[in-house]
Every structure is written in C-alpha cells, then in structure tokens.
Amino acid sequence: MESYHFNWNVIWRDWDALLGGLALGLEVAVYSLAIGMIIGQSCAFMMTAKSRLLRVPSRVYVTFLRNQPPLLLLFFAYFVLPRMGIRLGREESVILTLGLYAGAQLAEVFRGALVNIPRGIAEAGKSIGLTTFRVNLLVILPIMFRNALPALGNTFISLFKDTSLAAGIALAELTWQTRRISTETFAVMESWITACVLYVVTCTAISYALSYLENKLRIPR
C-alpha cells in the first residue's frame, strides 16, 4: 500500500470556490433565518392567542415540522414539488425548506419568550392608552426579542450548519465544493480538513459576534 502524499495545491487552486461556497451557505442561512423569524413570530402569536382557530393550526404546523428530518423536506421541495407544477431552483428550495423548518423551531423559542413577559407590562401599556396592536408592536415585541436573542443566535448557527444539506441537491456550497474537490483530485485529507476548519472557524466567529451582540442589547438592570 502506497502511503498518502499531501498536496495542498489542489486546495489553493479551488480556494475561491470554497470561500464562495461558504459565502453562499451564509447567504442561504440569512435568508432562511428571515423567513423563519416571520413564520416563527406569526406562529408564536397564534399559539398564545385566545381563539382555538388560531392555536390549533399553528400547533399542528410547529409540531409536525419540528419533528421532520430536514433532508427529507429538502428533497420533497426540490424533487416532488416540481411534479405538482411548483418549480423551484436549488437555492430557493434550500431557503424555503430551512426557512419553514426554522420557523417551527423559532415559534417555540418566541412562544417561550412571550409567555415569560409579565402580564403587568402589557396592562401598563394599555393603561397609558395604547391600542392592542401598538402594545404588541412597541412594548411586547422588543422585550420578547431580547429574551429570545440567545436562542435566536443558536438557531442561526444551526441553520448555517444545516445549509450543508444543500450538497444533497448539488447546490454549490462549501460541502458540495469540498466533495467535488475530494472526488476529482483524490485529495481527501486536504479537502475535508479544510472544510472542517472553515466550518469550525465560521461557527466560532458567529458565536463570538452573537455574544457581543447579546451583551450590547441586554436589558439594563
């Protein structure tokens, strides 16, 4: 058996493709987070509403989607929806899938953050003459958002990691690029070490940025 020869040149040659893949993953994660936050926020309000008509469907959506393997959802969006006349590109499929999936996770996060706000705060808002809508928008939402921020950050990191699933439908993000390089050049060590390092560095950087943000936005006491 001939021993392995390291050849880092294949990595430098495709360095731009790898970084481009990383950037694509981050971009997809940001868009999915945006969709997820909108869905999660709406579901959280619905889940805490008085009417059953709002609570039951949002509960069903959240429970069903939270307990699905995201890869199955992605393949459904990319391979099955077109057969029903809904054609999505690779990137759109990933963003839609991860957005819907994150929406279900975030609904629970936001719901928890909403429930934790003392009733008196909303009542205080009403007593100074704000409408229900304005109480929600100006009083409840900012507090809820701050409560939810740590969990929101974790969701973003796991969304970014989940963008690697896009390799399954051949979207040219970091994991797909790495797999391409590793099978084209047989430089398995170099390519996968590089990918792992890039992912770990990016996740660590995001998590430091988030804890800085959390400190800045913490409710002053």
């Binding site: 058996m1 021993s3 392995y4 990691k161 989940d162 963008t163 690697s164 699933l165 390799a167 399954g168 994991t175 790495t178 797999r179 590793s182 398995v188 060590m189 390519s191 996968w192 070490i193 990918a195 792992c196 992912y199 770990v200 996740c203 660590t204």
Partner: peptide
Amino acid sequence: VDVARGIPGLVKIFTVYYLVNQLVIE
C-alpha cells in the same frame, strides 16, 4: 466537543467516510 459541535452533521459523515476511512485503510 467544540470542534465536533462546530462541524455540520453531514460534513462529519463525509469526513469519516472519506478522510477517516483513508487513514484506516492505510
């Protein structure tokens, strides 16, 4: 722990399948 949590699950699977397997074969 930090490294294992920073690498996406799929990348871990590929890394074991391609890289670790290569080491084991050698």
